[in-house]
């Protein structure tokens, strides 16, 4: 493990500590329990398409939202 300090972000409304050099992809992958479930991610209110998540470095206070399919009318 590098000496990078941990930073705090919020993921779906809950605070999480991640390594300071984490990408959004790493944080999201660590959090998802069902790899088969479809999902899409936003960071600070902006949709970040999945192919770009690995390149999105996290900063302290980032708000990550992982969305999936729900019932709707």
């Amino acid at each position: 493990m590098s000496a990078a300090a941990a930073i705090t972000v919020r993921l779906n409304g809950e605070e999480r500590e991640v390594a300071a050099d984490s990408s959004a992809a790493q944080a999201v992958d660590a959090w998802r329990r069902d790899p088969a479930a479809p999902y899409a991610v936003s960071v600070n209110g902006e949709h970040v398409p999945r192919p770009r998540l690995a390149a999105r470095a996290l900063r302290p206070g980032d708000e990550i939202e992982v969305w999936t399919l729900r019932q709707g009318g």
Partner: peptide, 19 residues
């Protein structure tokens, strides 16, 4: 069928499979 997209609870592929 209409659906919505919302914050995920982490797991839960069952709904998608059903649809």
């Amino acid at each position: 069928l209409t659906v919505s997209v919302r914050r995920s609870a982490g797991g839960g592929n069952a709904f998608y499979e059903l649809l």
